[in-house]
Nucleic acid binder design. Structure first.
Lengths: 145, 145
DNA sequence: CGTGAAAAAATAGCGTT
DNA sequence: AACGCTATTTTTTCACG
């Protein structure tokens, strides 16, 4: 993981469909060297994958919420992960510091759908209660770097 | 936005570097038709862009936090957006329902860096106080669909 | 890592429904 | 208006220095 790898990552975070020629130019490398580096970054797991950023408005699912989870007892991260994995509306889940045990980012079609999904989260025996903040408007979204 | 567009989006969310032949197969289309559709989805804004999903552990920045913002007065979303746009550690920002006015997702090198970034958020005249939850462990991250 | 040739994919033009 | 097909250009990929 040197400066060249970081340049490649910056380039491909900005545009995952960049050609190897473009990636190479951004990193000061030939196209073939750029490909070898990128392949290695994927193989080692530094890059998890490539994804399209979709406008939630354009899709059917346009109701977003941040949900704080308060657990009963002290479930392990693995147990929590296993419980949440089956709920497709849960997009992002992290254990956090502070009063809550975990923070979820959820995505649903509409409010009734979101409510139903939160019910499923609650029905997990591990979860005692939840506290939700529904997204009203999205101010900015940046690629993660 | 029909079923074919949705199939294309599903395909490209799973792998943004898929070839038009692959995208076409997923949608039951020829490569050229797949390209035309994808180009249109980008042009209309349904697809905002293509990005690599980077393992935060592998990068220098591996301290994440959810930050609730409580504002003075009633700033417009536009004003809030403008204030946060200059702070690169702010990855995601939304106005939300509930007690807080907005929720941020922030990413920094380490705790001191995060603290400094939150200070910058606080120094914004619009912000009265903040409440942070630092991410301890990431349970799951799914592409947004 | 770079170079250069072969294979694959992307792109643009054209005819069809 | 949208598709498939074909020809051309560009990109990817691989062997070698």
């Amino acid at each position: 993981m040197d400066a060249i790898d970081e340049a490649i990552i910056r380039c491909v975070v900005r545009d995952a469909r960049a050609t190897y020629a473009e990636i190479g130019k951004a990193a000061g490398l030939s196209p073939s060297a750029a490909k070898r580096r990128l392949d290695r970054l994927v193989a080692t797991g530094a890059i998890r994958g490539f994804s399209a950023v979709v406008d939630p408005q354009a899709m059917a699912w346009h109701t977003e919420a941040f949900v704080e989870i308060y657990c009963t007892g002290n479930p392990t991260p693995a147990a929590l992960r296993k419980a949440l994995d089956d709920i497709p509306e849960v997009i992002d889940a992290c254990t956090v510091s502070g009063a809550a045990d975990a923070m979820l980012y959820m995505l649903a079609k509409d409010i009734p759908h979101l409510e139903q999904a939160i019910q499923r989260v609650r029905s997990t025996t591990l979860v005692e209660r939840t506290e939700s903040a529904i997204v009203l408007s999205r101010l900015l979204t940046r690629p993660r770097l």
